[in-house]
Simulated scan of single mutants.
Amino acid sequence: MSKKTVFITGGAGFIGLHVIPLLLEKDYQIRIFDNMARGDRARVNELIATGDVELVEQDVRYGGGVHNAMKGATHVIHFATVSINKSIADPYESIDINMVGNNNVFAAAADHGVERLVFASSASVYGDPKRLPMHEDDELNPLTPYCISKRAGEDLLGFYQRTKGLSWNALRFFNVYGPGQKIEAYYTSVINTFIQRIRAGQAPTIDGKGEQSMDFIHVTDLARSVVCALESEGDNLPINIGTGIDTSIATLARILIDALGSDVEPIFVPRDVLVSRRAADITRAREVLGWEPTITVEEGMTALVKAALEQ
């Protein structure tokens, strides 16, 4: 039998480059589809040298290119996207890449009859949650063009499921972090800012009481969830991918101070702060994917600090 081929958009990015080695271990062929605007070319070249990875350097905005490049693929992972920050600064590009790109990939996957499509959705589709932990059936209130496009992407998948039988899973990623992430990344800017200040002997500054929280999920665990979603019996569902634990900014600062062996104390700046908290209900991920996280935020952040010190 010939190997199954995974077509992975945005595969040269942070998460894609953690997923691809797991797919290679399972004997898939990999076809990366990436415009390389932010891709790691050196790492992609290393993967191509294995003989089981190829790169198609094109853009998801061009439907014909997506359709042609997907020929022969049995599975699709759709990661290509414009970030939250950039979507606010430039809504036009965000809608073009995130909305038109989504439709181009989904339509091609439906036309080619792929076995499964996995879509990188986002916890941001919930907006500010009314309760914790956040469940997939909770009300959605996406606030930015990026978040709106993720919700619309899930709806589009439902359309292609109903009309053409497309099998899909949409993973609502919470706050992913880990080695190889660009330091300006939306969710990790606070981590990197804290690390830089603590290393310089300066105290991290925190607005308010530091009660704002995120559900930090390590990229190694998250990559496993993608492979599980590609192969699961259950399909056609949005699925939260997080730890189920909300880590406050004050707690994060303490974890990083301890990991760096520093004796600085955080400085809390009194000001009104909209306290938003996030934690995923991961019951569905356990039941449908047979997946759960294995790396605690303390372990993951300590490893991240160790790696930063070694650079």
Rank of each mutant, 00 (worst) to 15 (best):
A250H: 08
G13M: 08
F216N: 05
N240M: 00
H78T: 09
L171H: 03
G10M: 00
I191K: 03
T220E: 13
G63I: 10
Y146I: 07
D137P: 04
D215L: 08
A280N: 01
P238C: 01
V190T: 09
L132T: 09
E139I: 05
I198G: 11
N169P: 02
S248C: 02
V226P: 09
D281P: 01
R38Y: 14
V118N: 05
T5M: 12
R254K: 15
L166R: 12
K71R: 14
H218F: 12
E93A: 11
K150R: 12
T193M: 06
M70I: 11
I239C: 03
R38L: 09
I97W: 10
E211H: 14
D215P: 07
T9R: 01
S2Y: 09
F173I: 07
A123T: 05
G11D: 02
D258I: 05
V273N: 04
P129K: 03
D281Y: 00
D27N: 15
D281N: 15
R43Y: 07
L132K: 10
R278S: 02
R286Y: 10
A185T: 07
E310D: 13
E233H: 12
E299V: 04
F33E: 01
L166W: 13
I295G: 06
M1L: 12
G64D: 14
V76C: 12
D96T: 10
G51V: 02
A223F: 03
A107L: 13
S87K: 11
H218R: 08
I198C: 10
P270S: 06
G210P: 11
R284M: 09
S225H: 06
L140H: 13
G64F: 13
E54N: 02
I267S: 13
K86G: 00
L157A: 14
T144P: 01
G165D: 11
L309E: 14
V53G: 13
K164I: 06
F33D: 00
L252N: 10
S276Q: 14
H112A: 14
L230Q: 02
I32Q: 08
G39R: 01
N98P: 04
Q196H: 09
N85Y: 05
I295W: 08
V76D: 05
L274Q: 13
S262I: 04
I257S: 08
A170M: 07
N240K: 05
R116H: 13
V176F: 04
V227Y: 01
V275L: 00
P238A: 09
K130Y: 02
R31L: 13
I295P: 09
L156F: 15
E298H: 14
T205H: 00
V100H: 06
S225I: 03
D137E: 14
V76H: 07
D221V: 10
Q58N: 15
